[in-house]
């Protein structure tokens, strides 16, 4: 769907992107992660053809990115904004028409969206009469009204209250199910695991990690497991196929241990070792969260 190859972008005095490449597949929800100032917005602006890269290429659906692709992309910038003095309905239709929609189509779709998001009464209102959260909702509608194949959202959840953020999140997922590819940037990790299929991590203008979320997390596992058992406390001997990292005592005679496998052993060996001694409630591999990976990676590459 989107192939970004060796993008370099230099601004006077600092490098925004150095040799960044990434692949977004059709139908994915792709997260662009990184601390503030890493270069996410620069990359997004290049994909939107707002600025051009110094070198490198972007391919959209196999074609080199060009003006005709604009109508197939929907973009929600980080800095939200609409005409303050224009009526919302009129404004939405104007923005959709700039994306190549006919007036009739734009009106019909807008009515549908306004009904869906309970905004019917806003049509004749001016932006300045709305609350900040309402403005964001309107802007989200403006972004997706022309039913783009690729929806680019820069920090989509900032500025929403939890209720509206949930609504928008569900709308994004619904659009994704209908076939839209979603690319969004965020520096907040909570949303990543439940939303993203794949991510790229950008720090200080460099891409330092990318791939499918599951694969990344699994590659960051460190043979660590969580075990809960009920019964008398076990004293682990040296013959155990693992070493204990931490131990806690729960209610009802239950115990939690966090353990790390010895080299050459598997989870089966753990069960083998424990089964004769106690009743096992749970055994779970500890997979680091994206948040942990993010922090770890950014720390490794240095974050001032």
């Amino acid at each position: 769907m989107l192939s970004i190859r060796n993008i370099v972008k230099q601004y006077a005095g600092h490098k925004a992107l150095s040799d960044v490449s990434l692949e977004v597949e059709r139908g994915q929800v792709y997260g662009l992660l990184g601390p503030n100032g890493a270069g996410k917005t620069s990359l997004i602006r290049i994909i939107n053809q707002i600025t051009a890269p110094d070198s490198g290429e972007v391919y959209f659906d196999g074609q080199k990115l060009n003006q005709s692709h604009i109508e197939r992309i929907g973009y929600l910038p980080e800095e939200r904004g609409l005409y303050k003095k224009m009526e919302i309905g009129e404004q939405m239709i104007y923005l959709a028409r700039l994306k190549g929609l006919s007036r009739a189509d734009a009106t019909a779709r807008l009515k549908h969206w306004f009904a869906k998001l309970e905004m019917e009464t806003w049509w004749k209102k001016k932006i300045e009469e709305l609350s900040k959260g309402m403005q964001q909702k309107a802007q989200f509608v403006a972004t997706v009204l022309h039913e783009p194949d690729l929806i680019i959202l820069d920090e989509p959840f900032s500025g929403f209250d939890p209720v509206n953020a949930e609504i928008i999140k569900n709308e994004i997922l619904e659009l994704n199910e209908k076939g839209a590819t979603i690319l969004f940037s965020t520096h907040r990790m909570e949303s990543v695991e439940e939303l993203c299929d794949a991510i790229a991590l950008i720090n200080k203008s460099h891409k330092i990690l990318d791939g499918k979320v599951k694969a990344i997390r699994h590659s960051y596992t460190s043979e660590t497991y969580l075990v809960e058992y009920t019964g008398a406390k076990i004293h682990f001997s040296d013959t155990a196929p693992f070493s204990v990292l931490s131990e806690t005592e729960g209610d009802d005679n239950s115990h939690n241990i966090k353990l790390k496998l010895h080299q050459g052993n598997s989870a089966n060996d753990v069960l083998h070792y424990l089964l004769p001694q106690t009743r096992i409630n749970m055994l779970q591999e500890v997979i680091p969260s994206m948040h942990e990976i993010f922090i770890q990676k950014v720390k490794q590459t240095g974050h001032e």
Partner: peptide
């Protein structure tokens, strides 16, 4: 200036 301060500029120049 209005387009710039209201930040709608970025939406528009992603279209034109």
């Amino acid at each position: 200036i209005e387009e710039k301060t209201s930040r709608i500029i970025e939406v528009i120049i992603s279209s034109v």
